[in-house]
Amino acid sequence: MALDLELPTWLGRIGVFDLETTGVDVTTDRIVTAYVGVLDAQGREVSARSWIADPGIPIPDGAAAVHGITTEQARRDGRGAREVVAEITDSLRALFTQGLPVVAYNASYDFSLLTHECLRHGIPPLHAPGPVIDPLVIDKAMDRYRKGKRTLEVVAQHYGVSLDGAHEASADAIAAGRVAQAIARSFPLAGSAHELHTQQIGWARTQAESLTEYFIRIGRIEPEDALDGTWPVRDAAATAN
């Protein structure tokens, strides 16, 4: 693995984004907490905004155990879901309008769920959000044969990025941004964020196809249950109602 490359100028100022939610289904689950921030070239937080929402549905115990927000706390401290979803979307739209790339780990989850939340509440969703930088997709493409899990915690440790408070939206978002910068210092990436965004569309599709073949081979899924490799917003999100 190459080391100590110069950070591309387009990674010297980046947006970072993360959601914590009621579950893992992008079509039906809801936002509980969210974070949108900006990091500088040293990975330092230079602006930030956090939200806690009352999702309007009970937060399952399993989800609360992950992110620490119970139904009671969300009802007490959270703001209305529609207002929160609108503000998150506006914050991301502002970053894209400024030309900043936005880093999100496993971006197709966060952006797809946000799209469904927008459609649920009658809010115009982000149209073709980009450029998006997804350290999960990039790491798999750059270091394809490395063994082990690819969770944010594991990948952050691999690249020497500290992650305190995993599954807390701000901690995860900031760590993801720093991992993206660490990858860029370890492997030569594209000449621009837009070029990298386009590359990730193909990489994500190929990775999903490969994982689908593996899951079919071990009997985990049926052939008709192929994984959706559309990135950064899954196909299903476009047809939500």
Rank of each mutant, 00 (worst) to 15 (best):
L3N: 12
D4K: 09
D4A: 13
D4T: 05
L5K: 00
L5Y: 04
T9Q: 10
G15Q: 01
V24F: 13
T28N: 12
R30Y: 04
R30D: 07
T33D: 04
A34L: 07
Y35V: 00
V36K: 13
V38I: 14
L39S: 09
Q42G: 15
V46A: 06
V46F: 06
S50K: 12
A53I: 02
D54R: 02
P55I: 05
G56L: 04
G56P: 02
G56C: 04
A63C: 08
A64F: 10
G68R: 12
I69R: 08
T71P: 02
R75S: 13
R76A: 14
R76Q: 12
R79L: 11
A81L: 14
R82W: 01
V85A: 03
E87R: 06
L92D: 01
L92F: 00
Q98S: 10
Q98H: 02
L100H: 06
P101A: 14
Y105K: 02
N106K: 11
D110I: 08
S112V: 05
S112D: 08
L119E: 13
L119P: 03
R120N: 07
I123Q: 09
P124D: 15
P131R: 10
V137K: 01
D139R: 03
K140S: 11
D143A: 15
D143I: 11
T151D: 10
V154L: 12
Q157V: 01
V161I: 14
V161G: 05
L163I: 13
D164Y: 05
A169H: 01
A169D: 03
A171T: 03
A175R: 02
R178C: 13
V179M: 11
A182F: 07
I183M: 07
A184Q: 04
L189F: 02
L189V: 14
A193D: 05
A193I: 08
H194L: 09
L196W: 02
Q199L: 14
Q200H: 00
I201H: 14
G202Q: 02
Q207T: 05
E213W: 03
F215H: 15
F215L: 15
I218K: 09
G219T: 02
E222W: 01
A226Y: 00
P232I: 12
P232K: 11
A236K: 14
A237D: 08
A237S: 15
A238Q: 12
T239P: 00
N241W: 06
